[in-house]
């Protein structure tokens, strides 16, 4: 289950990350950034907990700027998933 979201301020940087992760055969999904993180029109990558460290490492090594990494919490009171900042 994809419980982590990496949000970008620049869609170009998100697409750069996408290419690098694809090259390394990492499983992820590109999604519009949940409005709870930012209401802008940026893109995010969602992925499972086991990929978090590897993805952060790749993004740092390539100087890709991120808004942050967020963990979804499906058991919030409202019933919708909410996000807490992870990085």
């Amino acid at each position: 289950m994809n419980t982590f979201v990496m949000a970008f301020d620049s869609s170009q940087q998100a697409l750069r990350a996408e290419m690098l992760l694809e090259q390394k055969a990492i499983v992820f999904e590109m999604i519009p950034t949940p409005s709870e993180i930012t209401a802008g029109c940026a893109l995010s990558l969602s992925f499972s907990a086991q990929e978090v460290d590897r993805i952060i490492e790749i993004v740092k090594a390539e100087h890709i700027e991120i808004r942050g990494v967020f963990r979804s919490n499906p058991s919030s009171a409202s019933g919708d998933s909410s996000f807490e900042q992870w990085v």
């Binding site: 301020d9 620049s10 170009q12 940087q13 930012t38 802008g40 029109c41 940026a42 700027e65």
Partner: peptide, 17 residues
Amino acid sequence: GTGSQSEEVDQPSVRPD
């Protein structure tokens, strides 16, 4: 408009936007 940080008044600092 850059399609990014749209809630901010200022031009984004992130490149290339």
